[in-house]
Simulated scan of single mutants.
Amino acid sequence: MITDDTTPRRTGTAQQNAVEPVIDMQRYELDHPLPRRATPATLKRVAWAKMLAVDFFTATFDGVDGLFAPWFRVLLDRVDSLWLTSLYLRTSTDGHGPSLCVRRAEWHRERDMAHAQEADNLADYLTTGTQLDHDLIFGTEHGLSDIMTATRRMVGTLATGSRISPITPRPAPWCEVQVEVVDPALTTRFGYSPQAQQCAALEYALPGWLAAAEDTVHHRSVMPDRPVRLTLHRLPPKPASAPLALLRTTQ
């Protein structure tokens, strides 16, 4: 059962140890124009896309390009903030260089609104500004063994079944949880509101996985040769305008 907010927090140590990516918004602007006016809903929609619309990306180490593919990700929505941790696996490696990337992002509504209102050009701010706290940690499976083990355990648990059931409304730290898995044992994407629904398999394994995600802030990233560019390849559904919208969806 989810009762406490154990969401990992980014710290100054995390920022020093990690790589800050560059977000390419060109595809987003073509398919879904950026908002002309800053409102909480529109800012959250763009932040949501920045978090979930990144699939494959490349990073260069010692002159060799590596393609990283999504493996597992969790997004937690607290209405006024979003938190994401995604794991990406390198599609091929010669045994040298990083084989895993941990991508972390946070969005905070009040700070985003303040920055957006101060910006001379909203589109420029959303494209190049500091809407998200965002970083990447590259490492090996051995160096990031705790999150690797926790993720394999999580995938194994979800592979036995991820039934979402309606329950009596309960307090929960998040209004929505989004999960995506791309693994030989399981490929799935689902979301639910822990305030009115339950996914027993996920909630059993989630605290341990969040603790392992928190520990990655102490790992120093392998540094790529040049900045890493994240392109928004697809546009996920907009976040629900209110938690009540999720009460109508059961699986």
Rank of each mutant, 00 (worst) to 15 (best):
residue 14 A to C: 11
residue 105 A to Q: 15
residue 119 A to Y: 09
residue 26 Q to S: 13
residue 111 R to F: 01
residue 90 R to H: 08
residue 35 P to G: 06
residue 48 W to K: 00
residue 13 T to Q: 15
residue 34 L to Y: 05
residue 18 A to Y: 03
residue 50 K to I: 01
residue 14 A to S: 15
residue 116 A to M: 09
residue 18 A to W: 03
residue 95 G to T: 03
residue 97 G to C: 05
residue 58 T to E: 12
residue 102 V to T: 07
residue 69 A to Y: 08
residue 29 E to H: 10
residue 36 R to K: 12
residue 120 D to T: 11
residue 54 V to H: 01
residue 70 P to A: 11
residue 18 A to G: 10
residue 84 L to Q: 07
residue 54 V to W: 00
residue 91 T to E: 15
residue 114 A to W: 02
residue 81 S to Q: 04
residue 98 P to T: 03
residue 19 V to G: 02
residue 16 Q to W: 10
residue 100 L to V: 15
residue 41 A to Q: 13
residue 91 T to S: 13
residue 15 Q to I: 10
residue 111 R to Y: 02
residue 13 T to Y: 04
residue 60 T to G: 06
residue 107 W to M: 01
residue 54 V to R: 00
residue 101 C to V: 15
residue 46 V to T: 12
residue 21 P to H: 04
residue 68 F to K: 02
residue 94 D to N: 12
residue 25 M to A: 11
residue 26 Q to D: 13
residue 14 A to I: 05
residue 117 Q to D: 09
residue 113 M to T: 01
residue 46 V to I: 15
residue 74 V to E: 09
residue 52 L to C: 00
residue 111 R to A: 09
residue 106 E to W: 08
residue 111 R to M: 05
residue 107 W to E: 00
residue 93 T to C: 09
residue 50 K to A: 05
residue 37 R to Q: 15
residue 120 D to W: 04
residue 86 S to G: 10
residue 66 G to D: 05
residue 108 H to E: 14
residue 60 T to V: 14
residue 32 H to A: 10
residue 119 A to M: 07
residue 100 L to D: 07
residue 74 V to P: 08
residue 49 A to M: 00
residue 34 L to F: 06
residue 14 A to G: 14
residue 113 M to F: 01
residue 79 V to S: 08
residue 38 A to T: 02
residue 53 A to K: 04
residue 50 K to C: 09
residue 42 T to P: 00
residue 66 G to P: 03
residue 117 Q to M: 08
residue 120 D to I: 04
residue 50 K to H: 08
